[in-house]
Simulated scan of single mutants.
Amino acid sequence: MKKLLLMAMLVGTFGFTYAQSDYYNDYRRSITDVNWQNVVVDLVLTTVQANQIYALNDRYRDYDSWNRVYVRNPDGWRTERYAELERILGNDKYLKFKNKYYKGQNPVAYYNKNKNKDKRYKHMDKKVKVHKVKQGKGHH
């Protein structure tokens, strides 16, 4: 019984883990998945706005520089990055950006959805749930 409970707790823990490097990969994809030159042209951005976006995209050039800032809060990059983008673009252009590149969805939510989709352990969730149901019926 104790082994089973310990296993269930471990599986639950692994089911919710999302490695620090996965957050960084999401951060990198938020930059590389968008053609920023097209954004500049499509939204008719000023040279100052374009330069601010390019500087934002170059802020953390590697994992170590990113990790120094987000080691304790790897989720923080999402809200900070998109708040900064909204500040640079202004509300109207940010909404156009969001609609075109994220289908109207908040980019923070877009990348946050990936956090709980760690496929490495998804198959284990079902086994734990089935086992808990079977275990509960046996003790009534």
Rank of each mutant, 00 (worst) to 15 (best):
K2I: 12
M7I: 02
V11D: 00
T13L: 11
F14A: 07
F14K: 06
G15I: 03
G15Q: 03
G15C: 12
F16I: 05
T17P: 05
Y18N: 11
Q20N: 06
Q20H: 03
S21N: 14
D22F: 09
Y23D: 07
Y24F: 13
Y24A: 05
D26T: 10
Y27K: 13
R28H: 09
I31P: 00
T32V: 00
D33C: 01
V34S: 01
V34W: 01
Q37C: 09
N38A: 04
N38W: 02
N38T: 00
V41Q: 12
V44I: 03
V44T: 06
V44K: 09
L45G: 00
T46G: 01
T47I: 14
N51T: 02
N51E: 04
N51S: 06
Q52S: 15
I53E: 07
I53W: 12
I53A: 11
Y54D: 14
A55T: 06
L56Q: 14
L56T: 14
L56P: 12
N57R: 07
R59E: 15
R59T: 15
R59C: 15
Y60L: 00
R61G: 15
D64W: 00
W66R: 13
N67M: 14
R68S: 15
V69C: 00
Y70C: 15
V71P: 07
V71G: 03
V71T: 13
N73C: 12
P74N: 03
P74R: 04
P74F: 05
G76F: 10
G76W: 12
W77M: 07
W77V: 02
W77N: 02
R81I: 04
Y82R: 11
A83C: 01
L85D: 03
L85K: 04
E86Y: 02
E86W: 00
R87P: 02
R87N: 12
I88W: 03
L89G: 12
D92P: 08
K96Q: 09
K96R: 06
F97I: 05
F97H: 05
N99M: 04
K100F: 15
K100M: 15
Y101I: 04
Y102D: 05
Y102V: 06
K103A: 12
K103N: 10
G104E: 14
Q105M: 07
Q105A: 08
N106T: 04
N106G: 04
N106F: 06
N106D: 15
P107E: 01
P107S: 02
V108M: 11
Y110V: 04
N112W: 14
N114Q: 11
K115G: 09
K115H: 12
K115R: 15
N116V: 10
K117R: 11
K117F: 06
K119F: 14
K119H: 13
Y121I: 03
K122T: 14
K122C: 10
H123E: 08
H123F: 12
M124Q: 13
K129H: 08
K132P: 03
V133R: 13
K134P: 02
H139N: 05
H140L: 11
H140R: 10
